[in-house]
């Protein structure tokens, strides 16, 4: 690692890892309040010379729809969305996602915002990338309290889509659809396997060779800190200020 790369921020490593999962995708959509996935998707867009189209929900400037809010789901149902991102208040070892709350539903000890498009997009989008920036036993649990969207489906249920990976502040997991289980893929720099085990509430498999999540090279960093940062600042100004120290361009 060169001296210049020692100040690489965790968000940049995570975004670069996400971009790696998006190679070859024609169309990637980013949901609400997802700045790091948005950064990764825009990096994939820059690297592909625009070949990977990115739609960031929440603004008409960053989406192309003319048929209202249902257009995203309609185009996904027609197979025109290759990748999407989901998070959850809880995610379990079977990749079930809970966006509703903690407790015995409909009672709630904690109420979250709701399931958004998860219970549909998880079924029809081929590459769903799960993300959670608090990797603890509170968030990565053995079994979710409420299934907003199931990680796998019974045989016979129409399911061209589903989870391919889970990225956290500690590591990157692959999801094995046949087995319905996560397999650790790489540890972020400075993180140990023991730390991941201690903070994960579910069992997961280990790969033959456990890698370190790559630190972005100089070219990737200059893309992230240049055009990607400027574009993300328009959508997520608070994030861009914190991570890249830049302000949105004047309108």
């Amino acid at each position: 690692m060169s001296a210049g790369e020692t100040d690489v921020r965790p968000e940049e490593i995570q975004a670069a890892a996400i971009a790696g999962l998006l190679e070859g995708a024609r169309h990637v959509a980013v949901g609400m309040v997802s700045p790091i996935p948005g950064t990764g998707a825009l990096l994939a867009n820059e690297r592909s010379g625009g070949g990977t189209r990115v739609s960031i929900l929440g603004s008409k400037k960053t989406t192309f729809w003319t048929n209202g809010g249902s257009e995203l789901f309609d185009l996904a149902g027609r197979g025109r969305l290759d990748a999407f991102f989901l998070s959850g208040g809880q995610i379990d070892g079977g990749a079930n996602v809970n966006l509703v709350g903690v407790g015995d539903y409909p009672e709630a000890k904690v109420r979250w915002s709701g399931s958004f498009g998860s219970a549909y997009l998880y079924f029809v989008v081929p590459r769903v990338i799960l993300f959670r920036w608090e990797h603890t036993r509170r968030t990565l649990v053995e079994k979710v309290d409420f299934v907003s969207a199931p990680g796998t489906s019974e045989p016979g249920v129409h399911r061209p889509g589903g989870p391919i990976a889970l990225i956290t502040n500690l590591c990157l997991f692959d999801f094995q659809r046949e087995a319905g289980r996560f397999r650790l893929k790489s540890l972020h720099p400075g993180v140990t396997l023991e730390e991941v085990r201690d903070n994960t509430g579910f069992d997961f498999d280990l790969p033959e060779h456990l890698a370190e999540t790559p630190t972005p090279d100089a070219d990737t960093l200059s893309l992230i800190r240049g055009p990607v940062a400027r574009r993300i600042a328009d959508v997520y100004p608070v994030f861009a200020r914190q991570v890249f120290g830049i302000e949105p361009a004047a309108a």
Partner: peptide, 22 residues
């Protein structure tokens, strides 16, 4: 909203976006 759900004074009918649109 969060307080009302926790107190059990509000009924939430949980949905998913494309189901509402459809």
């Amino acid at each position: 909203f969060s307080a009302a759900v926790k107190a059990g004074t509000l009924k939430v009918v949980d949905a998913t976006c494309p189901a509402v649109y459809a």
